[in-house]
Amino acid sequence: MSVHYTKDHEWIRVDGDVGTVGISKHAAEQLGDVVFVELPDVGKSAAKGGEIAVVESVKAASEVYAPVAGEVTEVNTVLTDAPETVNADPEGDGWFYKLKIADAGELKELMDADAYAKHLESEG
């Protein structure tokens, strides 16, 4: 299993051809208390970089983009009733959806944890 990050603060954990997707710890901290998550429908096909979910905090509503193209196979329904899970465990129990990856080659364009940490530093 490997974890990859986008510069827009999504992560994807890859297991075979299925990826689990969420938002990074940094993003969850920046958002503040999450109060609502709009998840995609199972079966929806996502384009790389396309809008796939919405996360709303007390501060702002933000679109969540798909890190790679694929088809949504499962969503984390826990978030519907307990959006605070995103703050409590953003890179674990607070995952958003799972996706059948269309082209594993697209993962190469993403960052590993170290590169993402450096990216955050450069963003200030």
Partner: peptide
């Protein structure tokens, strides 16, 4: 995700 780094803190 689109992120607005601005805004008021939400935690009282």
């Amino acid at each position: 995700m689109s992120m607005n780094p601005q805004g008021r803190p939400s935690r009282p």
